[in-house]
């Protein structure tokens, strides 16, 4: 199993989200450390979205709509609904929130990101279908819009969530 490189690759850079209803679209977020990627896929509407959140809390940010989880998650959920997704039937998966560095003044943002994401979803009556959060490895993630497969690549492996 390998991650795809193709013209239909849509990249969610840090603080960005990508959405597609095209069956050949692959949504990717590269090199996640403490950041957290949230993938949402509606099996009936066949629409998928991937958001690359950076931090747990902060003010709404026009240039990076999903920079902060608490003020950005609704931007992502509304964008999915605007594409025809019905959130209650969606598969919702998350990956990232690692602790890459152990020295310094507590860069433990990953843990806070994971907790804030789970709380934000619960507050909206949603929950994670599956997740790969924490640890101390980097991750690249890919959501296949055709079938909702969510692939996670680390330096040593590629797994499907």
């Amino acid at each position: 199993m390998t991650l795809t490189q193709s013209p239909s690759l849509l990249v969610a850079s840090i603080g960005e989200m990508v959405l597609s209803s095209s069956s050949d679209a692959h949504l990717v977020a590269y090199g996640l450390g403490s950041c957290i990627a949230l993938a949402i896929w509606d099996p009936r509407a066949r629409v998928g979205g991937l958001a690359h959140f950076m931090l747990p809390n902060g003010p709404a940010n026009g240039s990076s709509p999903v920079k902060f989880i608490d003020t950005g998650i609704d931007n992502f959920l509304k964008a999915m609904e605007a594409r025809g997704a019905l959130l209650n039937r969606c598969l919702i998966k998350a990956a990232g929130a690692a602790a890459m560095l152990t020295v310094g003044n507590g860069l433990a943002i990953g843990k806070r990101n994971a907790e804030t994401m789970q709380a934000a979803l619960t507050e909206r009556g949603l929950s994670l279908t599956a997740a790969s959060l924490g640890g101390n490895s980097g991750r690249t993630v890919q959501l296949e819009v055709a079938d909702g497969r969510f692939l996670i690549k680390s330096l040593s492996s590629v797994t499907e969530l």
Binding site: Y30, G33, M54, S137, L155
Partner: peptide, 9 residues
């Protein structure tokens, strides 16, 4: 590691 994973922290 991947540069992104180290730098994002």
């Amino acid at each position: 590691e991947m540069a992104g994973a180290v730098l994002d922290a």
